[in-house]
Amino acid sequence: MSSQDTRSLWADAFSRLVKDRWALISLLVVVTYALVALMATLGIGMPDWRSSLGIEYLAPSGEFWFGTDLFGRDVFAKVIHGTKIAMSVGLITSLIAIPIGVVIGALAGYFGGWVDDIISWFITTFSSIPNIMLLISITLIMGKGLLSVYLALGMTGWVGLARLIRGEVMKHKEREYVQAASALGGGHYRKLFVHILPNVTHLVIINTSLQFQTAIKSEVILSYLGLGVQGEPSWGTMIDDARMELARGVWWQLAGATLAMFIIVLAFNILGDALRDALDPKLKGK
């Protein structure tokens, strides 16, 4: 008997993930961004975006990789600060959206009937409102700022996941292992949270990776529109600055912010894809 057969789904998935070169690179990128964000949050070893170098609009050079902005601040330092903002938005909104999505979806899928009707109605209504409009109205009600961005994105990001979990739970609750649990006298709580949920966790993981990059993109859009982060750099406000600076031939702020965003969004997408393949039980052992 080969050792493969004794490996758990997770170990198997991991071994498949590391075999995919692009996935591995993407994972490294995500880890690097996370580390940079963490260090910037703790204030370790990262340049200070506030300090002015005195000379505005310096082109990129060996000293300033991404040049300087209109106040003579290092654009690279602003990109780093933007990374911190973006990663924190991704993390916190995922932390808000995922529990909501999982719980609501699981309840609807498991209980069915009128519970499902109400929740499905709510999900459908919620998702029929254009996302960006909803984000704008939430930030307008709660006032502008990072906290509003977290909440706005968190409160709107759970819809897709809830739908997915609902369908999956519906599928699982008819399965033999759940029936077995019933036969052994397992209650609703036990069946749902101990038996079914662990079997849909892989969806949550895949979704988190996609949720993360959606949140980052939304934060950039909100900040670009002036509704997001206030008074500190974010990739969105940097792109907003750049719109006018392009007339002066100052392209580095746009390039820095766009590049930083492009890399992380791409990495999350590749990683999401790879995770889906790796965690697909049908592909297990292949």
Binding site: S52, F71, G231, T237, D240, D241, R243, M244
Partner: peptide
């Protein structure tokens, strides 16, 4: 507007 925000940032700084 962008310029007003930049003026604000300058003041904050």
């Amino acid at each position: 507007s962008t310029v007003a925000r930049q003026m604000g940032e300058f003041f904050v700084k």
